[in-house]
Amino acid sequence: MNIQNIISEIENVDPEVYERLDSRRHIMKRFSFIGKTLALAAVPTALGSMLNKAYGQTTDDVKDVLLFAYLLENLEAEFYKRVVSTFATNGVPAGAAQGAMTTIRDHEVAHVNFLKSVLTSLGVTPPTYTAASFDFSGGKGSGTGPFATAFTNNYAVLLAVAQTFEDTGVRAYKGQAPRLINNNDVLQAALQIHSVEARHASHIRQMRRNLGQLIPAGVLLQPWITQAQSGIDAGNSSVNAAIQLSYNGENATTQASVPITNIGGQMIAANEASEAFDEPLTKAEITAIVNPFLVG
């Protein structure tokens, strides 16, 4: 049989099918593995997922994801710009700590500029964000939100906010990646930003572990996320609850229906099983986390 016949039939319905996919040759290549590696019963699913790749996501998805990422990167960039510009008063120690904040600022600013150029190339003019667009106290513009002490010579709170932003950024890109599967260039760039955010998160977590402040008793804060632990105790239950939104669901120990704890007869505890896989958040979940930091 003939997958080729199916594709030909689709071509009758949708003459642009080959433009939606990569090329006729490439489609055949994609299907060539079916007989070799998949049970026959899986063929319709494989066909479905390939057609999903062709029709499931649209240019609108790509633009929407890019605009969403642009907002998040502006939030981060403005945060670190403020951190770097207030070194004299915010308590970030000179040397390695200030160096790390400066490195991260440079990356976030680069992400903003890069995303803007991609959006522009797609004919989209992104909104203008400035420092005044964000309220890092988490008070929606009041300046008196739960994180108001982050810039008042309170290094531990500042680092806790930075960690939460980075871990949230990782989860945001991870959640949006599937919507980019039809656009190889944008997908790869998004993944390349995603892992930079993870590197930032790892470093800030190491900084917090070494500082040893605002870490809940009995928690070993590590460069990776254990269970659904934020590793942050701000000393205020409503602040902790706000932070927890960025960590809910990270305690997954089953992936694609495969239980990871003690997998394959190996001694893998539930903590390490949960750490080994970072979890995505949906756009709605990320929006709920980020909204308190937006003015207006």
């Binding site: 997922s49 997908l187 892992s195 993870a198 590197r199 790892s202 694609a256 896989f277 970072d278």
Partner: peptide
């Protein structure tokens, strides 16, 4: 490799793993 995958489910799995590798790399 993300762009080489057809299944969005596998893409998500790859995403779940790569950020952990990045945390290791940074360490």
């Amino acid at each position: 490799a993300g762009k080489l995958l057809v299944s969005t489910d596998y893409l998500t799995i790859a995403g779940k793993i790569v950020s952990v590798e990045a945390r290791h790399a940074a360490l």
